[in-house]
Design a protein around this nucleic acid. Sequence first.
DNA 1: TTGTATGCGTTATCAT
DNA 2: ATGATAACGCATACAA
Lengths: 331, 331
Amino acid sequence: MKVTIKDIAAVAGVSYSTVSKALNNSPLVQEKTKRKIIKLSQEMGYKPNFAARSLVSNQTMVIGLIWPTIDRIVLSTLVTKISNEIRNTDYSMVLSVDPVETSIETFKRFQVDGIILFEENISNPIETESLPILSYGVINDARKNYPTIDPNYEEAMNKAVKYLFGLGHTKIAYISNLSSPDPMQIEKNRSFRKAMQLHGLSIKDEYIIDTEGFNFYDGYTATSKLLNLHDRPTAIVGGSYDLSSGIIRAISEKKLSIPKDISVISYDNIPEMENTEVPLTCIGVSIDQLATEIVHSMIKFVENNVISNPKQFNKKMSPVLVERESCGTPS
Amino acid sequence: MKVTIKDIAAVAGVSYSTVSKALNNSPLVQEKTKRKIIKLSQEMGYKPNFAARSLVSNQTMVIGLIWPTIDRIVLSTLVTKISNEIRNTDYSMVLSVDPVETSIETFKRFQVDGIILFEENISNPIETESLPILSYGVINDARKNYPTIDPNYEEAMNKAVKYLFGLGHTKIAYISNLSSPDPMQIEKNRSFRKAMQLHGLSIKDEYIIDTEGFNFYDGYTATSKLLNLHDRPTAIVGGSYDLSSGIIRAISEKKLSIPKDISVISYDNIPEMENTEVPLTCIGVSIDQLATEIVHSMIKFVENNVISNPKQFNKKMSPVLVERESCGTPS
DNA sequence: TTGTATGCGTTATCAT
DNA sequence: ATGATAACGCATACAA
């Protein structure tokens, strides 16, 4: 049978309310008794009853993460980081891979204290109804009444183009998933064009390539197509880590060298960028920072139980450019 | 404020125990009152309190799935299927991407009713300690004291080789991740060799290629290497769906045709096999069946609350061969 | 068929 | 500093 605080109380010869206080490290109980009780509880293998605790405290100390599209590498990295980050707090994280609406239902039944939501693959804003929801996405939709953490694609693409331009590049190509209905992808693509304009650079249609997906091979095919052009670009901006190995592979198969013949910079700032065939210069909010911000904003939001004005938790992040070995001056 | 059964009782003019019974569809309450109460509860937006319910019933109706390596496509498909399957039951599923030990801790605190575990990437058997654990893996380790659902690699590989042999192939190659420490991969690879021996076929060392990973490109590289051989095989057995697009791609780049020049059969029986460049003949337990079996065994195990003799839930599945267009007689 | 009373394990509010 | 007790929301044995 499970051991409860009453069992401990019986053995310790105190009342169970004292045990409760001791276990919660209340100052209202003597150090001596406290230590005795704690020691006893360990010996007896006491595990607090989650249901009972949340019944009385009205919170579960669990935050739910909804992840309906478990296929992109970058996202799985983010999920892992978030999971680790939450493990460092008093909260636990739990994942649902069901569709957003279903997941929210489940999480409500579960009475999680808050929900983290990726805006990838979700087009309509969600109805929150009293449960703290925080999204990772783009701050733009006035209809949303929940806060969002925004990786700031505009600044990222701007920095990328500025960097390339500074090195002397003007013939800059962009390889990304342009056919995705995903609001985050759309914003990313839009931001590239805007950055080019800002630098007074013309955008050749043939330099904008749609990968139509996020697999290695999508990046490979797109890049091969690009390199078959008579007038090749001198630099490529890649839209995602998921595409980058394919991009690099296509270049090296054409016997071109990075960065001597062609420079490559990729969106997504994750450590794995170091480990591609050529260590990639990349741009984006560091994934660790992203994870940290997401979970701490979430927790602040949850604990600031006043749910009025959720937008105060909106946050635009600062992308950084990590220089490695894939960019140089055009030849 | 939240609405409870007491609120409903007050409005309905009955006692709250009647409401409880009605909501649980007890036969001890009149159809008429039942309907009235149910209708009322919907109108009032009643949501049962999960904590209270599980406090009294001693069960959460939640089963936890541990998935520490969120990167392989096939597995994400399986996870999704399992999630869907559980959605059809009274249970909910919740995922953890933490390391196995940590996940079990979390799930225990959570008091999930059962845990599903993938044996990918786990080498030592887990200590179960009173909580129903079901694994997806290989039935072989006597130290395990929890049941496992086994995809039966031996029969799968045997059927694959038999099929190819029946078509007239004798020069059969095998492309898979041979360097993985994963017990499931090891068993799969062992099974191929055994199947070859069983059919009296010799195994040329050059025909066994290690992909050293599960990415598209791993399959591509391995196959390219294979096709550079003077004495090419007439058939290839691929070890995983994750590898198969790479295999196909490498073949078509050599201007070889499937199945005219070379036959390909791949392990993993998922519908996506239909959608590769050449629809792939494949072998394996259908992923739907797998998911169904896993969740129903899990639930049976959970509800059969006697935890003695867990091995009774061990189950070896029956892999099937799905003929599509990638295999033919050797030219 | 319906209502009353009790208990699940915990925290929190009172007394002592 | 410690103990008694109510309360959380629900299910259920028992009483009516």
